[in-house]
């Protein structure tokens, strides 16, 4: 597996973490202990996740000639 393929896996894992944190914070926000800052950080996490996916698309486009092996 090349660095290109490993990078795609890594960025996918990182965006999954960002989305997971975002959803978890939204759940905390909706609970009785929720605070406004939880919503703020949830949105920030989801935006980060989306940003990483956009970057992944850009990366794959830029290195489309490189092998995944």
């Amino acid at each position: 597996m090349s660095l290109k393929a490993f990078h795609v896996i890594f960025i996918t894992a990182a965006s999954t973490l960002a989305f997971g944190c975002g959803l978890w914070l939204l759940r905390v926000y909706r609970s009785p202990e929720g605070a406004a800052s939880d919503l703020k950080w949830a949105v920030a996490s989801i935006v980060c996740g989306l940003g990483l996916l956009v970057y992944e698309g850009f990366f794959l486009k830029k290195l489309r000639k490189e092998s995944f092996l």
């Binding site: 660095l3 490993f6 890594f10 894992a13 990182a14 973490l17 997971g20």
Partner: peptide, 20 residues
């Protein structure tokens, strides 16, 4: 440089699991 990058990605991936 690619091989060093593969090691670095592994180290980063470990942190992606360690953090949560």
């Amino acid at each position: 440089v690619e091989v060093a990058g593969l090691f670095w990605h592994f180290v980063d991936l470990v942190w992606i699991f360690l953090f949560p």
